[in-house]
Each structure stands twice: as structure tokens, then as C-alpha cells.
Write a protein that binds this DNA or RNA. Structure first.
Lengths: 113, 113
DNA sequence: GTAAAACCTAACATTGACGTCAAGGGCAAG
DNA sequence: CTTGCCCTTGACGTCAATGTTAGGTTTTAC
């Protein structure tokens, strides 16, 4: 898969995919001419990255948390701790968003004609 | 209440409060010397603004959606529609965040030592 | 009345995840 | 081989909420 295919398959722009690579979130092989090639599994990985970005994790946090290209950090207690911390953050955010949803729903009810 | 008090009461910076006013989200009376004064209800209003900002609504959207200082837009069908649209957005985001939470929880389980 | 603390406006700086543009190179089809 | 499309790197632009700084004014405390 070339970058345009991956972009089409994931909805991310080619610019974003290059950015993910630059941030160490996504690996690619290069053709002899220097063009990026991706395995089919990259689609799933990009989806994961997008999901975590949408959850408010920074690319640097994702880099820390995903045992990515370099598998160095796997199963260190530090990684487990970091994961738990981010999970906590997301759950807090989930609670807060839940309350906001209720507020908005209240407004909708109040202003529905 | 002056701006410092409101900042202390809400956790927002004075800069942010002025910005909210600039964006038409928050009203203030001025003293003879030009300093802002807020009613006690402003605390609640700022909390609402923060909540909506945290949910990813832009200040311009909040301005549209909150029947704010100028009460012009109240109860127009358009407002009701806009509110429903934003509620939909937030609910979508909530779903997505929920899934992301599960993914993260899975990772935690996987990498827990 | 005076000093300190809080406030004012105005403007520029920051951050992060991209968009966009320029100048060029790779690659399949005709 | 060339046409046309996709790709490359690099650099600069954007956007939104907020930080920061500067230079001056108002309010509060003594």
C-alpha cells in the first residue's frame, strides 16, 4: 500500500500519515525510489492512532504508550503505569463529557419549540 | 465580584474570562474606573462555558447556542436545531471516547505486570 | 496620601495537529 | 519516452484558546 491508499482507507490525509511517522507512531518501508509502503495492518494502526488522538492524547503520549515500531519499552512497569494514568484521564474526561451531554440535553429540552 | 475573584472561583484565568467576554459568552458590568464586575451567577455561567469548551464546542458555537447576553436568539427553531446538532456531535464523541476507553483498558490489561 | 495589589488594553507568543505550497523525483500506461 | 499522477522533503501558514509582556490606571490597605 502506498500513502494515498492508506489515506483513502483511513480517512487521514497523507500529511497526517507523514506526521504520524515523524512522531514515531507509524512505520513504513521505502521503495527504491524513496516512496512509503505500508502493510495492510497499518490501516488498523492508524485507526488506533486516530482514536487515541480523538481522546485527547498527544502524539508524544501515544508514542510513549504504544509499544510501536521499536519494541523497546514493552512490559516495563513504567509503561503499565503510564497506561493506567492515561486510562484514568480518559475516564475522567468521559465523566465530564457525560455531564456536558446531560447539560446540552437539558438545553435542548428547554428550548425545543 | 471582580475578575480575580471570578478566576479564583472558577479556575479560569483572568485572561480566559476576558476572552470569553470578547467572544460574547460572558457579560460584565464596569465600575466607574472601567473594571469588570460580575454577579455571583457568573460562576455558574463560566462553569457551563468551560464544560462546553471541554466538550469540543468552539466559542463561536457556544455563542450561537447559549442564549447569552443578548437574548435575541431565544427559542427560534434554528436555535433548537443547532442545539440538537451539537448534542448529536457530543453523543457521537461520547461513543467514540467510550470505545477508546475500552481499547486503553485492554492495553492496560495486556501490559499489566 | 501613598504604596501595593489588582486591574486595564493592546499586542505578540505559544502549542499541536495539521493544511498548503514549491520544486522536484518515481512509476505505470500508451 | 513521455504524459500524468502520485510521491518526496522542507518550509511556512492556520486556528483556537490561552500565556505573556508592556505600560498605564484603579482600587484597597495602611
Amino acid at each position: 500500500m502506498r500513502i494515498g491508499d492508506l489515506a483513502a482507507a483511513t480517512g487521514a490525509s497523507a500529511r497526517s500519515l507523514r506526521y504520524y511517522e515523524e512522531q514515531g507512531l507509524l512505520a513504513s518501508e521505502r521503495s527504491s525510489g524513496g516512496q512509503r509502503h505500508y502493510p495492510a495492518t497499518a490501516v488498523e494502526r492508524v485507526a488506533l492512532i486516530q482514536s487515541l488522538l480523538a481522546a485527547g492524547l498527544s502524539s508524544s503520549t501515544i508514542h510513549d504508550v504504544l509499544p510501536c515500531i521499536t519494541e523497546e519499552a514493552i512490559r516495563t512497569p513504567w509503561l503499565a503505569e503510564r497506561l493506567r494514568a492515561e486510562l484514568g484521564r480518559v475516564e475522567t474526561q468521559l465523566d465530564s463529557l457525560h455531564r456536558t451531554r446531560d447539560i446540552l440535553a437539558g438545553l435542548v429540552e428547554q428550548y425545543a419549540v
